[in-house]
Each structure stands twice: as structure tokens, then as C-alpha cells.
Design a protein around this nucleic acid. Structure first.
Lengths: 402, 402
DNA sequence: TTGTTATGTTGTTTTGAGCAGCAAATAGCA
DNA sequence: TGCTATTTGCTGCTCAAAACAACATAACAA
């Protein structure tokens, strides 16, 4: 017992601070995809020599690669460019109500491969994991030959206990207390991490998408099965006491509203829904990306009325968001982005009219920008998180691939 | 230019990490008021010898004092107790609509002195600062003889830009763009920091009050002038893009509700108010602490109806809070605590019935526990924050008092 | 009294990271 | 084509935070 405490202390001590520098450096490279040594020096505030030492370590461990300096524009000695090692990847898994999508994402948010497996019906947790494992087994040869996999991130539409990777409750999938991370890790051998899909999307949008550089951001996604949200404050995702934070779909927007499946009444997601829009527009597909153009093209007054009605309720929810969080940006995705596109001024002026003046003047309302890659990038980000926190120790002392 | 970058880097480098340890140590002592060296070793994870060196530094700088080990309960060599130095204090200032309260608070959240100066009417910013400066001038002899003052924290009921210490907009005081920190610092010579009162109260409750140890906490205070809130996530106060976050008083709770002074309708603070309760109870005072007992004692059905009505709307706001934040605790203060005391089961069951099951099962709804010292402790905490972040460098190389 | 356990203390060692000086690579200018 | 200014990378040196190890000390328990 006595010797174990110093050992623990050591692990939390100089190791932690060493890895903090490597971690900061790698995170910067990850977020910017390509950076010169010189800009790393400026961004980290570390000394040139320190950067040099760190990068030589990271290069030796095949975590980054250096390429020839991009010549031209500046006086002085050109600085080599540092990029994430192209072989460093994470797996991304996203079960939905009619499909399971599996992706391979490189450090830097580069989606290398994306495979959508249609299930035709709602998959059980076991089915979703089996499908993902099968697809990954199919790629295994390629993975083991050309890549180093840091792990897998699974984005689930539901309440998730991230600490143990358990899906507590996913109403639209009908899942309840599924130890998804353990199931996946058991089948594939890769460490797995699970989180709420909207939370991951929020992070992806902050890092690579519409909210790049904005540290206080609220993301809202409208899909066929409801409205999910993710909140980012000071660059960190709001998790709450047990990781269930961000359920903006159940914000109160209407007295004596319709009952919601959550047991309450007047929730945002019972008033603002995709189905009536699809119906009025007579669209054949549920694909949210089709709704935007159709809405803009429509001249049907019934459609306009429904849009106005939904925008009214959405504005109430966003007003709460603005007053409570004072976000720098609100990013709308799915059919909420379509609603915004159909009448951007109507939505924005309604939100501003209801919110307090100061926070309202700061907020930018914009559609999501990562499109269909969003979930893959977000889920991969989850898998990368643990790696980025301690890049030097992550793979042990393995000499790596190739 | 060339030498200045390394200098900056140095300031952010080893100095920062050195002070990080001292900072962590002092923060722990501050939050726990009294800790043994042994427990500091365990809590920080640092080595015994490191703790020894750090504490001898802090003792030399008169930031902490060591006292004889408290004997008895445990096998082994007893460990000396470390406490904050009793001479280390912060000033706390809290302007309200009818008074300005000035306090002297020691490290560890100990309120040494509290002076409430009644103004009889709403003070202007200049008046509030003048009153505070006059009171502090009165204490100056004592302050300079016996204390070291880290600075002053000012808790203001309104929107505050903490970065420059400016009150952007305080509707109940009628203040608008007042550079309060500069005014105060100019008059008294002490560095001053300004923040929203409810936010500071939330922090005080987390550190020393009802939410001790709970890292995800929502604080709601009901006063004569409205409802303010503060949100703490992972132990950090939610600030938002410009520090205006936390305005939970303007959560939407009622369709076609009454117009609010914020320009919107159906806000929590237009439906849930102290005035009707005071009126129905025929109380002579506005003091929120009188409302609780009076409510519990009342048998008037009109009072009961009003309580039920307000609890209904409060439950809607809290339901949003639970769904969005998944807090570990909701702390109610002012007349909201009185409402809760009048019918705790009614409020809690209403919140739980409307919220999603998982986050609802985790949340504890409790009244605030710091009472009238709350604002003093919160404001002092603000002043201590800068000091705790870099305790060794804060006072320069001064040999300190006594 | 003696052994056990928990602590404090001192000197040594490891290691992250800044610093200085020199070399290298470019743009601009004559 | 050279010359200078500027920016950057590399190597060796140095500093300081903090772990480690060994020893001293103080309580409780048998």
C-alpha cells in the first residue's frame, strides 16, 4: 500500500505535465489539420526548442508527420508543416432507427470511409453492435495493415452514461440499459466510448464546423424522431451530473400543449416536428436535406402557416437558450436548419424580440455546416479524446505500424 | 520583440506550473478551512516532500498558518493542521435597491465583519461606490494594521461584463454601463472585480453551502425585484459568450402570459413573484426570511391557492432546468426557498412528474443554507479567485504585515 | 516495552522546458 | 549577384518542480 501511493502520485505528476504539452500540441494539429512549427510555437507559447523536442518525439512515435515547408509568402526561414499522421484513425459508429453507419475518421476530422448499413427496421443494441463489428471485421485487414486505431466512438440518440459506456434510455431505438461500450469492445477488441449523438455533433460543429472558434455554442438538431441538443460552454461540453444534459427538445414552449412521450406537456419536440412539414410538402422521403429546398420553393399557404407556427415555438425555446446561456452561436441542424432557411429573418427577429437585449445582440443563428459527415466526425472525436489527453502513453511502447 | 516572446513564454511556463501547485493547495485549504498535511498529500496526489516544501513557502509568505496536530483518533504520527492565514481577507460589496452592504471576509469563507448601510432609496452607481469607499476608509486603520487585503468583489443584481468590471445593465438599480470596478479601485486603491450577484451566490453555495461537493448545481434566488440564477457545471460557473448567462428569471413558463419588463411575455419572474405573497400574508416587511414561516403558518385558502399557482410555474422552469442541465442539486433562495418550504412535496413531485425520468431521479431540490452571509462570501470569493490562481506572485515580494 | 503505522525531513535524482548562441533558409534591395 | 534583415531550427546548458529513498519521529496497540 505504501509504495502504491507514490506510484499513483508519479502518474499524476510529471507524466501528466509532460503529456499536457504533447497533448496541447497534438490537439492543435488535430483541430487545424496543418500547422507550421512556427505557428505551434506561437499558439502554445512554448519555446522553439521545446517544440522541436516534442515534435521529434511525436514524429518518432508516428503520431504526426512533417512535410516540406510551404514556400513563398513570408520573409525568413520557412517552417516545416506538421500534420496528423495519416495512419492514425478512429472508428465511428452511429446507430439510427433505420440504419447503422460505420466510419473511419483520421486525426484532423478527415472522413476516410463511411458505410451506411440499412436495417429496414429499428435495430436492437445487439444487432447494431453486430452489424458494426461485421463491417469492421471486413475492414480489419486494411486496418491492421495501414492504420493505427485509437478506438471507437459510438453516437447514440438517447441518454448515455459516458463513464461506463451504457445507454441508459434511447426511446426512439427502444433501448434500455444497454452496456454498449462493453458489447462493442468485446466483439471488436477496440476500446469503445459512447455518448449522446447531439452532444457529439455539437462538439464537431464547434471544432470543424459552423462554430469554429466559438467557445459558447448551442447545437440543436431536428430529426424524424425528435429534437436533440448539445451545449458547449468555454469549449467544454456540458454533461451534467450524470451526462444527461442537453435535452433541449423537452423545453417548455406551450401551456396546455400536447402530451409528449416524456410524460410532460408542451415540449418543443411535440410542437415543432418534421412529420407535418414532410406531409404538407408531399415529400416522399424523410431526408432532412430535402426539406429545406422544398420549403423555400413552396407557395402553399398551408405550408407557410405551419412554418410560421413552428418558428413561433422554436423562437420561444431559443429565447430561453439565449437568456440562460448567452451563447455566441446557435447552430441548427436537420429540419430545424430547413425552418431557418425558409424564413431566417422571421426566426431571428422573433428570437431577438423576446430575448434580453445584451445576450441577443451577441448571438449568431446559423445552419450546421458539416452535413452528413457530422456524426462520424463527432463520434471519432469522442474516441480521439482519450488519446489526445495522453498521446505519448496511449499505445504503450509499441513501435507502431508500417 | 525577439526577447519578449521567450519572456512571455517563461511567465506562462514553469512559473505557471509552480503556482499551479501552490494554487491547488491554497484552494483546498480555502474550501475546507482546515486540513492536515496528510490529507493535502492525499487530495493533491503530490508527494509528501513536495507538500512540505510548498507549505513552508506558503507559511513564509504568511498565506497559511500551521497549528498543532489534533490528537487522538488515528494510529500513526499525527499531522499538523494547515489553515488559511487569518490576516488574509477580501472586501465584499453588495449594492441593493435600498442599501449597500460592505463586508470583510477571510480566506476560508469566514465573514469577519458586515456593515449594512441603508440608503432609503435606490443608490446610483456613484453613490454606492462612495458609500462603500467611506465605510472602507473607516476601517482602513484596522485593515492596514491587521490584514492583508487581496482586493474587493462587488456583487451586482444585473448584467455584468466581468472582464472590464463594467455593469452593462442593472434594471432594478437603474444602472447602465457603469465602470464600477474602475470607480471603486480609483477611490479605494484596492483592485476590484464585479460579477452578477446570483452567479456569485451560486458559487458560494457550491463551495460552502447547500451544494458542498456537488459539481453541477443550479441556484435560483427570488427577491423583491425578480428572480436571478447562477449555473455551475463541473465546478465552473457558466458565463456565456459575454458573461450574461444564467438569467433563469426569464425562462418561458406561460403562453399568453403577462408582459415582462424584458420585453417578452410569460417569463418566470412575471408569474412567480414575492409581492403577491407579502400582500396576501399581510406582512409589513419585504424580508424574504419572514415569508417562509408565515407561509407555513397560514391557513388562508387564498394564500394556499397563490402558493399552488406559483409552484406550478416554478415547476415548469425547474423542469427545463432538469432536462437541460441534469444538475445534481437545485438550490432555492429568497422567497423561492419559502415557496419550497411551504410545500416541498408539491414542488418536488411536480418537477419530477414533468422532467425526464433519469435526470429527475438525480436532482436534489434544497433551500440555500448560507443565509445573509451568502452575498458577502460570494463577492469575496470573486476577489480571492485571482489571488488563488497565483498566490505566490500576488503580493509581489512584500514581506507582508505584522 | 516493542512493534506497527502514519508522518515529517533531508538530500538526491529525474525531467520538462526556457535560454543563448550558432547555422540555415528565405525576401528585399542595391 | 551579393548583402542584409528576418525568421526559424538545432545543440548544449541551466533552472526548477516534484518524485524518490532513507531516516527520524510520534502516536496507538499488544
Amino acid at each position: 500500500m505504501a509504495p502504491s501511493i507514490p506510484t499513483n502520485a508519479k502518474a499524476a505528476g510529471p507524466d501528466a505535465s509532460r503529456s499536457t504539452s504533447a497533448s496541447r500540441l497534438l490537439t492543435l494539429v488535430h483541430h487545424n489539420r496543418q500547422l507550421s512549427r512556427a505557428s505551434l510555437t506561437r499558439l502554445t507559447g512554448l519555446n522553439r526548442s521545446t517544440i522541436s523536442v516534442l515534435i521529434s518525439h511525436l514524429t518518432a512515435q508516428q503520431l504526426v508527420v512533417e512535410s516540406a515547408p510551404v514556400g513563398g509568402s513570408q520573409v525568413g526561414r520557412p517552417s516545416p508543416q506538421v500534420s496528423p499522421h495519416p495512419g492514425l484513425v478512429a472508428l465511428a459508429v452511429n446507430p439510427e432507427i433505420d440504419a447503422v453507419t460505420i466510419g473511419l475518421v483520421g486525426l484532423g476530422g478527415r472522413v476516410i470511409k463511411k458505410i451506411r448499413y440499412s436495417t429496414g427496421r429499428i435495430p436492437t443494441a445487439a444487432e447494431a453492435v453486430n452489424i458494426a463489428a461485421a463491417v469492421i471485421d471486413g475492414m480489419r485487414g486494411e486496418l491492421e495493415a495501414n492504420y493505427r486505431v485509437v478506438g471507437a466512438g459510438i453516437a447514440v440518440p438517447g441518454l448515455v452514461t459516458s463513464a461506463d459506456g451504457t445507454v441508459r434510455y434511447a426511446p426512439h431505438l427502444g433501448w434500455d440499459s444497454e452496456p454498449l461500450a462493453d458489447m462493442f469492445a468485446g466483439l471488436t477488441g477496440y476500446p469503445a466510448f459512447v455518448a449522446n449523438d447531439a452532444s457529439l455533433a455539437a462538439e464537431a460543429e464547434m471544432v470543424f464546423g459552423a462554430g469554429t472558434g466559438i467557445k459558447n455554442l448551442v447545437y440543436l438538431n431536428g430529426g424524424a424522431s425528435g429534437i436533440g441538443g448539445g451545449i458547449i460552454s468555454e469549449g467544454r461540453l456540458l454533461a451534467g451530473a450524470s451526462g444527461y444534459a442537453g435535452e433541449l427538445g423537452h423545453t417548455f414552449v406551450r401551456s396546455d400543449g400536447l402530451p409528449c412521450h416524456c410524460g410532460s406537456r408542451g415540449c418543443l419536440e411535440t410542437e415543432v416536428r418534421q412529420a407535418p412539414l414532410v406531409e404538407l410538402l408531399k415529400l416522399a422521403t424523410d431526408d432532412p436535406s430535402a426539406i429545406g429546398p422544398a420549403l423555400c420553393a413552396s407557395t402553399d399557404p398551408a405550408v407557410a402557416a405551419e412554418v410560421a407556427r413552428q418558428i413561433g415555438f422554436l423562437a420561444i425555446a431559443l429565447r430561453n437558450v439565449v437568456n440562460i446561456f448567452n451563447p455566441g452561436a446557435i447552430v441548427l441542424d436537420g429540419f430545424l436548419a430547413a425552418l431557418h432557411a425558409a424564413a431566417p429573418d422571421a426566426l431571428e427577429s422573433a428570437v431577438r424580440a423576446q430575448s434580453m437585449r445584451e445576450p441577443a445582440s451577441q448571438v449568431l443563428i446559423s445552419p450546421a455546416s458539416l452535413g452528413t459527415d457530422l456524426m462520424m466526425v463527432g463520434a471519432a472525436e469522442l474516441a480521439f479524446a482519450g488519446f489526445l489527453a495522453d498521446p505519448v502513453g496511449y499505445f504503450g511502447e509499441q513501435p507502431a505500424i508500417s
